[in-house]
Each structure stands twice: as structure tokens, then as C-alpha cells.
Design a protein around this nucleic acid. Structure first.
Lengths: 345, 345
DNA sequence: TACGGTAGCTCATACGTAGTAGCACTGGGT
DNA sequence: ACCCAGTGCTACTACGTATGAGCTACCGTA
């Protein structure tokens, strides 16, 4: 920059040139109802002065005066960009950016909260940087529940992508409709003639799996199907005994909570000379990464849509801070594959 | 959010709780020289109150008062995320995020400047949104030179990724060292025994190509090589006559400015039964997308490093607004490939 | 005792904008 | 002559922060 930044013209300068007061300038510039009360001649004088001086509103002063910055924050508990391509979380940002742009908000990426241990926290030195934005979208696998509780306690407006239950703290989450899509998957299996199902349950107990389990149980009950598998009773993992039981039993379709479980099952079946889907139909209740080559029938999380919805929910919260903090559920779709076939007779 | 967001705490609130004045709080928070004059006991009281209230400085007020927000802007003339994976520009952001995080800055993604025509401009309704950030990194293929000129004219601190020359406006750019790496490439060809080179020149005249041409011409002169090709004389494109000339001439290596030119050349050679690199070595002076499968010897742009450097340069500008606005050159590397072989005897 | 010096604060103000209260003036009605 | 309503503005203030000027107590010195 060759020359130093000279002081930008302000409304007062415009006012002097136009021979009116600063507040008159403010009113003309604001447009709207107030400006209607100002006669055409004055308005023209002011606008002429604005043009002549090249006046631009100072956004800091503006947002100091109003309480809105038109800034939405994005806090990711892990760095976004560095692993963005591979990251599960990346696509959410597509939707977030899209929708924020449509609504005229800018985005603040909270990157400065990184600690030396590589973990990101909302609070650094006890200071909540997020306050800088009108509200924030939070996401990440290793969400710090203490941070969430404190944020909610302070009344800071935020939305979490993915379900998180924090006792004593209420805040809106935007979550994939695992329950609904699991029901659809069971419907589809029933349509194909499957009456006896088995459920493979993951060993870890993250919250979203509860939704799948509920959706599964409901659909099985609703359709009057049979499931006497250990997974449906609440036992996790996959043992040799279960597989033997499965093979000798009436089950024709398996619903697996996670990809590793499905892969394990596939391997065991292969050893025994059984084939998917000829001998057994298998569905995976996960969104599979593109590099997975097995053509599993699986579910697909509408990440972009979730990002967009998160922004909508956040803006709703900003506009009505007293509204209820409910979770918003976004429908998932089923990815067609080659691991499901009509039930053998 | 259960309770309505109470007014964000300000320094006055902290002051009341700590039993001091607002300015004392300001001084403690500012740290530095002023804070040194404040005894440990008071400082502790204040910081305690800050923690208890969860106070965080209001960036608008701060930047109204002085001009540092600890916010750096990123303005992309095209949306980043939507095409991020494929985008040439995406990796720059990795470096930008990394370096901003290291330096304790947050990033503002200026997404809201999108016009209805899909193009992004810095100015919307004549207002420079970027003012919100202390300074900005700009990038994009369709950089609007008018915007750049106006920004520079206003003295707004910014850095452009990629070389842009705007008459009458001086601002720092961070650019790949096309000139240097082109020289290296010619060195490498010379090492392999090539004495007679040809240069394929692209038809469009974007600025970065000038760097390559200069680097090429310098290296050829320095090493005493021969180049009597039309491209070296300034003629663009690739005609049948040139190819005939090339085949019958002494040239053993070709330097192509762009991938399409190299592809075209390869096709023409193939028709004539000639092979790369057996009959002719070929180098491409471009950073190739991952989906390009031909194993061209090409150059590689250190995008992450450029992003990091852009932040460093920007912060330098902020710290010394009167400093000179020079372009910073970041070294490129040569990607090994299978299109160069030692010169035939 | 008077007085300078300094540590440790407080006071007051400016930054640029938006909105509210209110003033000066006009014209019409009674 | 007086009031009232309306028009077209201006005066003033708050928003939250940083900072220079200034105030007060106290200590050391003469």
C-alpha cells in the first residue's frame, strides 16, 4: 500500500458538504420508513455528497450501534481444512456456506481457539471467542460437553450438528433422521419378502445409535417381523456362535450398525461358502466413505442439507431467542447397492 | 436455549464486580506496557471477574476505537466450498487456516458479497464489507481489477494470492516462483543433454505466464542453449507446420506452457509414430490436477505454503502499514514424470 | 513541615452510527 | 388571537472500548 490509509469519510463529512445534520444523512442512507419523511430535494443533496466523497458506512460502528453483526460463527472441534477432503465433516460446510450466503451473513471460522495439544476448545483462558459472532454452528467428533454446557448456560445462541445430550443444558441440534431411515430400510426388506431379520449391534454406545435402534425396533414391531438375534436383545459384537445360529436359523436379512461389523460378517460368510445377497441380504446403517468399494446397501446422510438447516435453525434462534430449543431432524436416503435381494422361498 | 441471552457482559460489568473502574479493566485486558503499572493483586481481581462473567471483548467496539480485531478476512471471488474439492483454490485455504490459527487470528469468510449473478464483488451497494476484518487475503480466478484498484485506493490492507498487476494500485501479491522453477526445468533438460529446445506458448496472456517466459528465456541464454521455435519468438498456439519443423529440426525437448498444448502435441506426435520421451522430451509448465493420468514432468505449486505466506505477509502489512508492497515469491517444485529422457545422440 | 515524585488508580472523551425526543416553522381551523 | 397538526429537520444520546489527562494517597527528602 503506497499511501497510508487516510481517514475514511463519515456521515458527518457528508452532512457538512450537503448542509444538513449527521442524523439527516443517517436517515437518508437508511432508506426505509424514516427516509420517506425526507423531501426529495434534500435526499438528492445528501446522495450527491455521498457520491462525491465516496462515503461508505463503517461496519464496526454500525454493528456497535445495532446489536447484530451479520456474522455467524463456525466452531469445529477439529481443524476443518487440514483434513477436509477426507473429513466426514467437510460437506457440512458446503451447506453452511451456501445458506449463510443466501441469507446475507458472513462466516467466522474460529480457528484461533486451538490449544497446543491440538485440541480445540471454545474457551481459551476462560474467554469465549465465539461471542464475536451473533451465533455459531458447532460440530466435531470430539465435542467437549463441558464447553457446550457452559455455552448454553451463558445463553449464547448456538446449534450443534449431530445429536449431543448434555444434562442440564438445552440447545438445538440438527441431526440426520437415523430413526426414520432405519424404518424405511426395514420396510424395504419386508417388501422384498424378508420376515426374519437379525440386528448386528456395535460395541460402542454413541448417541446416534440409539436412534437407529429405536427406528429398527419400531419398524419390526409395526410390520410384525421376527428378530430373535442377540443384537436385537441388546448384545453387541459378532461371535462365531451367532453366525452359526444365523446360518441354521430362519433369518434371511441382517441389519448391521457399522461397516466393520458388516465386513466381518461378510468375511465369515465367505469362509463358509455363503454369498451375499444370494444366501443372506445385508444392510449397513452407516454413511459409507467413497473409498468403500463393496456395494453395500447403506444409508446416506444429507450433509449439505444438514449444514443449510443448521444455519436456518441458528437464524431462527437469533430472531426469537425465547423459542424452544428443539432438535431438527433431516431425512436421510437409502443408497441402493447389491447386498439385498428378495428373500429366498 | 432455556433463558434469553442476557446482555453480553462488558468491561463495565467486569469493573463493577472487581470493584475497579472500566478503564482499569481495559488496561488489564490490553496487557502490555500499561498493564505493567497495575499491581498483581488488582490484575488478579479483574481477571477473576472476567472469567466469572465470561467477558469477551466486543470486536465492533474495539475496531471502532482503534483498528485491530484479530480478524483476518478471506475473500474469494468464487464460492470456495461448493467446488472446493476440485478447486484449484481450495488448498490455499489449508495454509491460510493453519497459519492464522498459529498466529491467534480468526478468519472471516466473506460469503455474503455474492451478487445475484453469482459473481462475487468486494463492494456491495458501494459498501466494502471487508472493513470488518483487519485485513484480507483475496484470491480467485476472476479477480475484479476494479475492486482491487478501489481497495488499494482506500488503503485497505490486503494481499492477493497470485500475481495481479493493476495500474496505479500497489498491493502485495504472493505468487508461485514460476520464473525460478522454469529455470530449474531448463537446467534439468540441459543436464540430460538437451541443447536444442522448443517453447510452446499458450494463446491467452494471463500474467503468470510472463514469469515462465522470462525464466525460460533467461535459462536458455544462461546455459547457451538453442531455441528457434515460434513460441520462443512470441507466437502462440501449435500449427501443423511447426510440428513438421520440430520433427525435422534439431530440437530434442519441448517446454509447453499449458496442458492442452502438451496434449495436442502428444496427439500429433502419436499420429506420426513418434513417442514421448523416446523421440522428444516434453515438460508442462503447469500444476496438474490429480485426475490427469499422463505422467507429464510438470511443476507443482506449493499451495499450502502460499496460503501460509499470504497470512504472514498480511500480518506484516498490518504491523507496518507504511512498508513497501512487494510481491513475495514462493518456490515451486518439479514433479518427476515419464516424459523426459536423456537427449538422443 | 513542606514539597516533589510516583504508584495506582479514575475521569472524560472520541470513535461512527441510528434512533428518539423535540424544536421551529407553516398553515388551517375556530 | 390562539391552538393544533403536520413537516422537516436538529440535538442528543447510547453502543463498548482505549487512552491521555488528572487526581489522590503515600513515601522520601530537605
Amino acid at each position: 500500500m503506497a499511501k497510508r490509509r487516510e481517514r475514511a469519510p463519515r456521515q458527518a463529512d457528508v452532512a457538512r458538504l450537503a448542509g444538513v445534520s449527521q442524523s439527516a444523512v443517517s436517515k437518508v442512507i437508511a432508506g426505509g420508513a424514516e427516509a420517506a419523511r425526507i423531501p426529495e430535494a434534500t435526499r438528492r443533496k445528501v446522495l450527491e455528497a455521498v457520491r462525491e466523497l465516496g462515503y461508505v458506512a463503517n461496519p464496526s460502528a454500525r454493528s456497535l450501534r445495532n446489536k447484530r453483526n451479520m456474522l455467524l460463527g463456525v466452531h469445529t472441534f477439529e481443524p476443518v481444512f487440514p483434513h477436509a477432503r477426507e473429513s466426514f465433516f467437510f460437506e457440512f460446510l458446503l451447506g453452511i456456506e451456501e445458506r449463510a450466503e443466501e441469507l446475507g451473513y458472513d462466516l467466522v471460522l474460529f480457528t484461533s481457539t486451538g490449544a497446543s495439544d491440538g485440541r480445540r476448545r471454545v474457551y481459551r483462558n476462560g474467554v469465549n471467542r465465539l461471542n464475536l459472532a451473533d451465533g455459531s454452528v458447532l460440530l466435531g467428533a470430539v465435542t467437549d460437553k463441558g464447553d457446550l454446557a457452559r455455552l448454553a448456560g451463558e445463553g449464547y445462541p448456538f446449534v450443534h450438528i449431530g445429536r449431543r445430550e448434555v444434562p442440564g443444558a438445552e440447545f438445538p441440534c440438527v441431526v440426520p433422521d437415523y430413526r426414520g431411515v432405519t424404518g424405511e430400510i426395514v420396510d424395504m426388506l419386508a417388501d422384498q419378502g424378508h420376515r426374519h431379520l437379525a440386528y448386528l449391534r456395535a460395541t460402542f454406545g454413541l448417541e446416534p445409535y440409539e436412534d437407529r435402534r429405536r427406528g429398527y425396533a419400531e419398524a419390526v414391531a409395526r410390520l410384525g417381523l421376527q428378530d430373535r438375534s442377540p443384537g436385537a436383545r441388546g448384545e453387541s459384537g459378532l461371535t462365531t456362535e451367532w453366525i452359526e445360529e444365523l446360518i441354521s436359523g430362519p433369518e434371511t436379512a441382517v441389519v448391521a450398525e457399522s461397516l466393520p461389523l458388516a465386513d466381518l460378517l461378510a468375511a465369515e460368510l465367505r469362509i463358509r461358502g455363503l454369498r451375499i445377497p444370494r444366501d443372506l441380504s445385508v444392510v449397513v446403517l452407516e454413511d459409507l466413505a467413497p473409498e468403500v468399494t463393496t456395494p453395500w446397501v447403506a444409508l446416506q446422510i444429507p450433509r449439505v442439507q444438514i449444514g443449510r438447516t443448521a444455519i436456518d435453525v441458528l437464524v431462527d434462534v437469533l430472531e426469537d431467542p425465547d423459542g424452544v430449543a428443539e432438535s431438527t431432524v433431516v431425512p436421510c436416503s437409502v443408497v441402493p447397492g447389491a447386498t439385498v435381494a428378495p428373500a429366498p422361498r
